[in-house]
């Protein structure tokens, strides 16, 4: 951990971020498709198709429609997926196959700056996708403003946390196939059981405790409150959860990357 000093981390990480932005801009039209269409598909399939079966959901003491319930979950999942997949598969390809990090490390860039640039880039993708999705969901009238706008800065913090977790896996997996493990053991269960499509209160007691440990549960709580226009102390635990996640996982990602790349 000795190496993670301010000395090794300057604003030059933005150069790495810029490189990724340049590549992203070349096919931004394709990158814009999923956040534009995904909410449509989910809201139609789950919201319209399923809500007749489900009816209303009791959330925080009040009855809300099923569409209103799942829309913020879609945003939370989107924050998680964009950063996590960018900093696993995409970062791994750059590191392992394209040897982009090797080339960068022969320039004044430090490893700390390269990894920071990658993680901030992953979070940026979360922010971009979240903004697009937020706009689409707003068309359905499912977001309260101005409170809902806070979801955008939230997606940056969430993106850094989920991206750092992804980067830790990138630093330790031997090959790209192995990402299937965290995806199926971590991402998919969170996608289903973090209070996304049904309240975690419907889970058995022990499972609720586990769910409360998962980052997506807290992200869903935050986006759901903000979408409903709730801004009060109830947001604090979730917010602290993500700040602490960033403080823990971001340096850990750099440390693990050191282990992998500096021999």
């Amino acid at each position: 951990m000795r190496k993670i000093l301010p000395l090794h981390l300057s604003m030059r990480f933005l150069r790495v971020w810029e490189r990724n932005l340049l590549v992203y801009r070349q096919n931004w039209k394709i990158s814009f498709v999923p956040p534009l269409l995904e909410p449509f598909f989910y809201l139609v399939a789950f919201g319209v198709g399923l809500s007749t079966l489900v009816g209303n959901i009791n959330y925080d003491g009040s009855e809300i429609s099923y569409m209103l319930f799942i829309a913020p979950a879609l945003l939370a999942i989107n924050i998680m997926n964009n950063a996590f997949f960018e900093n696993t598969y995409a970062s791994f390809v750059r590191m392992y196959y394209q040897k982009t990090f090797d080339a960068m490390m022969a320039t004044p860039l430090t490893l700390e700056e390269i990894i920071t640039g990658e993680i901030v880039w992953g979070a940026t993708k979360s922010v971009i996708a979240t903004s697009i999705m937020l706009a689409v969901i707003s068309l359905f009238g499912l977001i309260r403003y101005p409170e809902g706008l806070l979801i955008i800065p939230l997606s940056l913090i969430g993106g850094i946390a989920f991206g750092s977790i992804g980067m830790i896996f990138t630093a330790i997996v031997a090959n790209i196939e192995l990402f299937n493990l965290p995806v199926f053991l971590f991402i998919t269960p969170m996608f289903l059981f973090s209070g996304t499509f049904f309240p975690i209160e419907n889970l058995p007691g022990w499972a609720q405790y586990i769910a409360m440990l998962l980052p997506l549960t807290h992200m869903v709580n935050l986006t759901r409150s903000l979408s409903l226009g709730i801004v009060d102390m109830s947001l604090l635990p979730g917010f602290c959860y993500f700040v602490i996640s960033c403080i823990v996982f971001f340096p850990l990602a750099i440390h693990k990357m050191h282990r992998r790349l500096i021999k």
Binding site: R19, Q26, A103
Partner: peptide, 12 residues
């Protein structure tokens, strides 16, 4: 520095 392996950026 010219590395032994080609590490040009194929995305660019």
């Amino acid at each position: 520095v010219c590395h032994q392996d080609n590490n040009l950026d194929p995305d660019l």
